[in-house]
Nucleic acid binder design. Structure first.
Lengths: 337, 337
DNA sequence: CCTGGCACTCCGGGGTCCTCAGTGCTAATT
DNA sequence: AATTAGCACTGAGGACCCCGGAGTGCCAGG
């Protein structure tokens, strides 16, 4: 049904359309790509491609434009990830090298990815679920309040103020701190709930209320709010594009963090590049965008995702190359921290 | 030169133009505002206003549009800050009340402000320079590394990993921690450099290298990187506006945090509302935007700024009311934390 | 000093025309 | 059977023109 040449035509259509942003006609194709056949032949192939839904005409007597389905085939079978150039790789390395803490690593990564792809970049903070507790700190703040700081081995620091504990006693806090650290430091976060279950019983009754309050906040902050932090950059790059949906819709979608997190999370093939094209994104405002995402992590455990959002008409091989490369470098930097 | 009526005309021009986004003519003014004079008279006034540079015509035979100078006069003398409605105030309160930590307070504040004003909101994290040290924590991470966490009384937590200390000895770290806290906890950040100056001398020589390294990172993180954190929301609201400069330029300007920080920082009258109109913003991309900003803080000490960026054609009284109200509420919440 | 009247200006919407890129079809060629 | 040349057809969009109407500046009279 789709012989080699028809596929070549589809590839050519996608490539030309991405370059020119104009419907591509049979003559232009014959000229620019060495397909070895006449425009008329190409037209016949185009009819076949159109019948199968890979390309479409904006109107009669216009050239063809790839459909979502056409891009999908292109990404799956007609293209390969384009590796970055050596200068680009060096730029990544030097750009990320200077970061002093996790916040800065993430901030630099997202700006870097936006610059490389000239699109909107998204970086998710390393998930808490896969990390383990490095240390728990309790600091009396005066009054009835205590600040809890949890430090994980992925560099993330979670902080919470706990209020209304009744009188806060310095030594009681110290006891609780060392008890907590003995119980859970080094533990994987998933193991924390079990590990602290019977701690309150070991606390003298007069401080049990405080212990319970602290533990409930601890569990809550580690388990419930775990993946929600993401950072964006490069929204200005959207202004150049003209979307089918309004730019406003796209910007609105990008501000809804939960939507982005869900979209990033839906990778089919973990630890590989995922490309979601056009209507494959369930979200209304992102119907005319594509999302290229990848996992990053230390070793072969995935910590979180990074990704790029751009028009469906995007340079897939190049974008995929940039996302993959940046994901790898972030993993390395994180491992070195 | 500018009698009462001319000022009334200018006010009417600004108000109508903000409402309709179309040049306003003399007839429309006479109809909609009870100025008590005929269109012809208004035309004469308009000529005077135009000669003085307060309004301008996009082209002959069009109505008038306020200039930056016109908006400036309007803001300074012709309008008053519009207080929020009771439901709006309640909404603010309930929206901010549920925040559990500083990050969430800031995140909610910026979204709230964006929603209230239907423009781009900016919130700067509480400055470190005005806060004082609550507690310093040092956590050995294994290897040659130590994590330092500084907790301030404004709820901010700064973290840094310090590497290459040679062998890290647990008790040495403990000693250094308690020495540090004795020396600086409770101190205003500005006083920290002096207070730690002679600490290394008190450390046993074999651990002095570590102490020096820790102190230098401490000073660096507190002094050098102090104001740089800001958060944006509501960029989608820009899509509805048509700017003289391209939308892209505006979005780009908004991504340059340093630019925004500088603009927010340039308040004329501290602890008051500041309005910067059009070309008063030195930055190219923001030539056709106005910025309304205010300080927020606890008691009467200012901790940082919040602000709103929108088209020069904005509802100044309403925006100023929202910014002022949100600034006050954030201050209260922060004081309560 | 204000106002009605009037001639003038010019933007913007609507209509028409025309060009031209690109198509689909048919018949000829390989 | 596949490819190609030729050709009539289609529709978007640019150029052009026209015209209505909002709005102006100016003048003369109240």
């Amino acid at each position: 049904m789709l012989d080699e040449r028809k596929l070549a035509v589809l590839r050519a259509v996608v490539e030309d359309f991405v370059n020119t942003n104009e419907p591509v006609g049979s003559r232009a194709l014959a000229d620019r790509h060495r397909l070895g056949v006449s425009p008329a032949t190409i037209r016949n192939d185009m009819v076949a491609l159109e019948e199968d839904g890979y390309i479409a005409q904006p109107h009669t007597s216009a050239g063809r434009v790839p459909t979502d389905k056409g891009y999908r085939l292109f990404v799956d079978r007609l293209s390969s990830v384009k590796p970055l150039s050596a200068p680009e790789r060096r730029a990544i390395e030097s750009f990320l090298a200077g970061a002093v803490d996790l916040d800065e690593i993430v901030a630099r990564t997202v700006r870097l990815l936006a610059q490389l792809t000239r699109q909107v970049a998204i970086v998710q903070y390393p998930s808490l679920t896969r990390s383990s507790v490095q240390h728990v700190e309790l600091v009396p703040l005066g009054g009835q309040r205590v600040m809890m700081v949890v430090i994980t081995d992925t560099g993330r620091v979670e902080q919470r103020v706990i209020d209304g504990l009744g009188e806060v006693n310095g030594t009681a806090v110290n006891d609780l701190r060392s008890m907590l650290n003995r119980a859970i430091s080094g533990l994987h976060l998933g193991e924390v709930p079990d590990a602290v279950e019977d701690l309150p019983a070991q606390v003298p009754p007069e401080h049990r209320q405080m212990a319970v309050a602290v533990l409930s906040v601890l569990l809550e902050s580690l388990v419930e709010r775990h993946e929600e932090k993401i950072v964006l950059a490069g929204t200005a790059n959207l202004a150049a594009v003209d979307f089918a949906a309004s730019l406003r819709d796209v910007l609105e979608a990008l501000e809804e963090n939960m939507v982005l997190i869900r979209l990033l999370g839906e990778a089919k093939d973990p630890s590989m590049l995922t490309v979601r094209i056009g209507a494959e994104n369930f979200h209304e405002g992102l119907r005319s965008t594509s999302i290229v995402s990848a996992d990053y992590g230390v070793g072969n455990q995935s910590l979180a995702k990074i990704g790029v959002v751009g028009p469906t008409r995007m340079d897939y091989p190049g974008t995929m190359g940039a996302v993959r490369a940046v994901a790898r470098y972030v993993g390395q930097i994180l491992a070195g921290q």
